[in-house]
């Protein structure tokens, strides 16, 4: 449903992102940056350090940072699922996209045309636009689930049989993929999917902020979405 800016005023505002969502967003973003960097180094370690083994714990520290950030991501994600239920309507958007609704897909198409610069003006949404919803649903929500499940399966290999990670994850995930190395490879591919998501996400956020006549980046800090009239906007029905 498009939120249309009232005609009389130049500015209007809606409260969209509640504080828990905003705090979660930035913790989650930080965790993912740490996971990506340390994950990359787990796959391709930095140059060797010299001296005695007992003097260093470099690779151990990189892995430890990965695991700390991993738990931040997992706990944050669980909290975010809870908040999808407890929070306002916008909090549910990326978890339960209205896939069965025809207008949803038409609006996605509209949004694609806007990005392809065929449409002259964007539609306005209080929450995410439908294209953002569908890409966040697939590339963030499901990817996060995938990374958490494969990550915990790999983690369970270290904690060993008997640990909850092993019992609930390694035990079925590793045989499902065939072997541990294959899980590593898929977990590693997930890194690049996230990187692609983050590039597009940040680019889109900056671009929309400038071009779409609604506040985007500041909304994720303040919670408020403000609208201003942009050139080319049709007269509202």
């Amino acid at each position: 449903m498009a939120m249309h800016a009232p005609q009389q005023e130049m500015q209007s505002a809606v409260y969209v992102y509640e504080a828990p969502v905003r705090i979660w967003h930035w913790i989650n973003a930080l965790a993912i940056v740490v996971l990506c960097v340390t994950g990359y180094f787990i796959g391709s370690p930095p140059p060797s350090v010299g001296g005695e083994a007992s003097d260093h714990y470099l690779f151990g520290t990189i892995r430890f940072a990965h695991f700390v950030a991993a738990y931040a991501l997992i706990i944050g994600f669980l909290f975010r699922i809870y908040w999808a239920w407890a929070g306002n309507d916008h909090a549910r958007e990326i978890f339960l996209p209205p896939l069965a609704r025809g207008s949803f897909w038409r609006e996605i198409l509209h949004e694609i045309r806007w990005y392809a610069m065929i449409e002259k003006a964007p539609k306005r949404y209080a929450g995410h636009n439908p294209l953002a919803i569908i890409s966040m649903h697939i590339l963030f929500v499901w990817l996060a689930v995938f990374m958490i499940v494969t990550g915990l399966a790999l983690y369970g290999e270290g904690t060993g049989p008997g640990s909850w990670q092993h019992r609930f994850f390694s035990d079925w995930v590793i045989p499902l993929f065939g072997q541990s190395q294959t899980v590593h490879t898929w977990h590693h591919l997930g890194l690049w999917v996230i990187v692609c998501f983050v590039i597009v996400h940040i680019y889109a956020a900056v671009r929309e902020d400038i071009m779409s006549g609604q506040s985007i980046i500041s909304s994720m800090f303040s919670g408020w979405r403000t609208f201003r009239v942009v050139k080319g906007e049709r007269a509202e029905p």
Partner: peptide, 29 residues
């Protein structure tokens, strides 16, 4: 250390595939 992935007529590591994809996405952006 990194496995090679087969498919689509290519054979590459996760970093080669992902790095290329990220560059392409970044370039497009």
């Amino acid at each position: 250390r990194l496995s090679r992935i087969h498919g689509f007529g290519i054979e590459a590591t996760a970093d080669e595939i992902g790095g290329t994809a990220a560059l392409a996405v970044g370039g497009l952006a």
